[in-house]
Design a protein around this nucleic acid. Structure first.
Length: 169
DNA sequence: GCCAACGTTGGC
DNA sequence: GCCAACGTTGGC
């Protein structure tokens, strides 16, 4: 993937992160110390490149529950640490262990995110699909498996409107 | 449970 | 480098 270097003052970018709530939900994030966690386990090169090269501190994240009932955007988070090696790839006992990734030459990366807000009313996939302003969202496209996806600032705003909340400054 | 859409692997 | 087989994701 082509990666553009962006200047330090670049405007924040917006993302959508998928997570199966059975394995990690927004409630789990809310229970973390300082409501902060590392986003580990990404084992896809395109998503890896985003984590390693593109996603910056201050960027914002829509937290999406996939494979869930209901599937929905359930809240937001902020990136508080840029990409660094995903240590779970080094641990043979970890579900995400990858012997190809070595500490001195890591294959996989992760970032840290901090909870911004849990939506008082989650925005279901049904509602997202019914909103014409969101018709280009990657997550709504069939077969869009990328677990980390870019979102436009316009889409970010619309999702907040659907959730009935104000964006955090 | 089904299956489309990918991504990865490995034989050639 | 091609591509068939296989595995995974994740909506339906």
């Amino acid at each position: 993937m082509a990666t553009k270097k962006k200047p330090a003052h670049a405007a924040r970018q917006y993302w959508l992160f998928k997570s199966e709530p059975e394995s990690y939900s927004i409630a789990d994030l809310a229970c973390e110390p300082n409501k902060t966690t590392f986003w580990d386990g990404v084992r896809n090169y395109q998503a890896r490149n985003l984590l390693r090269d593109t996603i910056k501190r201050g960027d914002r994240v829509l937290f999406y529950h996939s494979n869930a009932e209901p599937m929905a955007i359930v809240g937001t988070a902020e990136v508080v640490q840029t990409g660094y090696p995903d240590h779970t790839a080094f641990d043979p006992h970890d579900h995400h262990f990858d012997p190809k990734s070595k500490p001195d030459q890591p294959t996989w990366f992760m970032i840290d995110v901090k909870l911004l807000q849990v939506f008082p009313k989650q925005v279901t996939r049904e509602e997202l699909k019914a909103c014409s302003a969101l018709s280009d969202m990657m997550v709504l496209r069939r077969g869009a498996r990328l677990s980390i996806q870019p979102v436009t600032s316009a889409e970010w705003q619309v999702v907040h409107r659907l959730a009935g909340v104000k964006d955090k400054p």
